[in-house]
Design a protein around this nucleic acid. Structure first.
Lengths: 110, 110
DNA sequence: TATATGATATCATCATACGATATTATCCTT
DNA sequence: AAGGATAATATCGTATGATGATATCATATA
């Protein structure tokens, strides 16, 4: 069960969040996301990072580590704004779907 | 500031959530989403409902109310599964980006 | 000098999102 | 009964996005 359409935004918010804690790079964030159960192939991961950069949420900081090239990304002000917008909307989501007796049962339906 | 790419999944989760509380119809859910600050035009709303139905998260219950045709939607078991998956992932998101001193400040950056 | 490894890039294709516009049926007003 | 106004949903065209597969490139190791 993938249901990616519901969670792609979550993935991007995770990325921005990690980038707000310190520089990240592709292969690293892929592992981080994997720990949350999100598995992105490189064909999704890198275009996503490029777009987040192009749109001004992230900024590149190319570096060479142990001889290998890495493209670190740091968050921008615009990225921080989206993060705080995300916090508000996550709060609403919690109030709606988690609080006040959120049912988990499956009724005889469909 | 729209940043829709981050929040489309939120919108869909809201839709499934409301559909889990009782039958919903397009124009109604549009207003509900509006109250959360999400503004969907009909060109986004209806294709979204159709897709959620086609993919098995919602089911149609056509009806006529006060002479006017409405297409109510109710959630399916598959929809309930996604909702509970969503609850788990929202929880993770809260732990990551809301808890433990989530910063809201904008540093002099970019 | 092969081969493996780490990291990132790109391509082709299919799916999606969206504004704009159209459709359909009923209600209201005169 | 004719003509809007209103409620609700549908569709079209286009631009954008997501994805698996594959490629690139430099370095380390055998």
């Amino acid at each position: 069960m993938l249901d990616r359409e519901f969670f792609l935004g979550f993935i991007k918010i995770h990325i921005l969040h990690h980038a707000s804690k310190g520089p990240i790079f592709g292969a690293e964030i892929a592992g981080e996301l994997g720990r949350h159960g999100y598995h992105l192939g490189p064909g999704t991961l890198y275009p996503t990072l490029h777009r987040l950069e192009k749109e001004g949420y992230l900024e590149q900081r190319p570096a060479v580590v142990e001889g290998r090239a890495r493209k670190y990304y740091v968050i921008t002000n615009r990225g921080l704004e989206v993060l705080s917008e995300a916090r508000a909307k996550i709060g609403e989501l919690v109030d709606e779907v988690l609080e006040k007796g959120a049912a988990t049962q499956m009724e005889g339906e469909e």
